[in-house]
């Protein structure tokens, strides 16, 4: 089934203080499509994890927020794009408890569990793009 993009927004994230406005923007969009509180919380938490990764490893990047629709379902798609060092072993980075920093290593795998669809593309030396979708009822 084809997916339609209904609404689009871009935010640049370069410092720690940009995280809270980003969360608020995501919340705004999620509320607009009538997403329930639990799913909203999951989506915003996932966004928080991913944006934190972006700040930590790539010193920031861009976040695209979109309202998408597929069939009868509406959802929010977030794209996190950075021009950082990239991830050499994506499969390893997706494992629980793996971290090159001193975090809990829950960022990527945790974020994946919180959303409906998750995709990561990374080229070492070029950057990383993470795309997540959370369906309204998913």
């Amino acid at each position: 089934m084809t997916m339609l993009t209904l609404n689009k927004d871009t935010m640049a994230v370069v410092k720690e203080q940009d995280v809270v406005p980003l969360r608020n923007r995501v919340k705004e969009y999620a509320t607009k499509i009538g997403m329930g509180l639990v799913n909203q919380t999951k989506l915003i938490t996932a966004a928080s994890e991913l944006v934190r990764n972006m700040l930590k490893y790539a010193k920031g990047g861009k976040v695209f927020i979109e309202v998408v629709s597929k069939g009868r379902e509406n959802g929010i798609r977030l794209v996190f794009e950075d021009k950082g060092p990239g991830i050499s072993d994506v499969a390893l980075a997706m494992k629980d408890g793996y971290s090159t920093g001193k975090s809990l290593g829950l960022g990527l795998p945790g974020a994946r569990r919180l959303v409906s669809e998750f995709d990561i593309q990374s080229t070492p030396g070029k950057g990383t793009t993470v795309t997540v979708i959370k369906w309204k009822n998913g």
Binding site: L37, V38, Q40, T41, K42, T45, E49, D96, L104, L106, P109, G110, R113, L114
Partner: peptide, 14 residues
């Protein structure tokens, strides 16, 4: 803790 936060933490693995 709010219910939505508790559910999210569990799903996150924390």
């Amino acid at each position: 803790m709010q219910p939505a936060v508790a559910i999210t933490l569990i799903e996150l693995g924390l």
